[in-house]
Amino acid sequence: MELSEPKIVELDTFKIIGTKYFGKNQHDELKKLWNSFYPRMEEIKNRIDEQKSYGICKLFPGSSKFSYISSVKVANSEEVPENMICKIIPFSKYAIFTHKGSLNSLGQTYEYIYGIWLPNSSYEHSTLPDIEEYDNAYCDPNLDEYVINIYIPIK
């Protein structure tokens, strides 16, 4: 696996609406979360980009549990569909990595980011959640290769 150096960017504050999971993903819960979310995306009004969806992942130091929201960006959150949540992602600086490959190898990309790149960079991970940006054209569960932009919040 080869990853190029990340692009460093600043993202303005944005809003998302989606469905939330909290746990360890021991039984493919994230796949189930996405599979139940995709058919419901049309219920979300005021979407900003119909071609993108986002995984918002918050790690908790010292715990193997994490929160994850399958989501889309929205212009406003006046109407949140039943059993969905709205969250505001604040302004931050991010290192963007591009994962190309199977979902099974996504863990290796994160191991590189957190085990090699981040400790050897001049940056620290901030307390904000990581963001996975999916192009919906690449989110067919039958695909063997995905292109996922991974935004790591840094300071």
Rank of each mutant, 00 (worst) to 15 (best):
N136H: 01
E124P: 09
K155F: 10
Y134I: 12
S121M: 03
D140C: 11
L103Q: 11
G55P: 05
I148F: 06
E124L: 15
Q26P: 00
Y54I: 05
G107N: 11
P141I: 07
K65A: 08
Y94G: 03
R47H: 07
L103N: 08
Y94D: 01
P90V: 03
K20T: 14
I8Q: 07
D12Q: 07
K52G: 02
P61Y: 00
I56D: 11
L33P: 04
I69E: 05
S53W: 04
V74R: 04
N25H: 06
E50I: 15
M41H: 04
E10A: 01
Y138I: 11
I154A: 07
M1Y: 04
L33E: 08
E145H: 00
S63C: 07
N136R: 10
Q26E: 10
N35S: 15
Q108A: 11
S71W: 01
S63W: 03
R47V: 14
S126V: 00
Y110A: 02
F14V: 13
Y112H: 11
G107A: 07
E79D: 07
L3S: 05
F14E: 04
N35D: 11
Y138P: 00
S71G: 01
I116T: 15
P90C: 01
P129L: 05
M1N: 10
E2V: 12
I152K: 01
G107F: 08
S53V: 01
E79I: 14
W34D: 03
E132T: 09
Y146V: 11
V74D: 03
L33A: 06
N35F: 13
R47D: 00
N46L: 13
P153A: 05
E79C: 11
N136P: 02
D49T: 15
Q26F: 12
S64L: 12
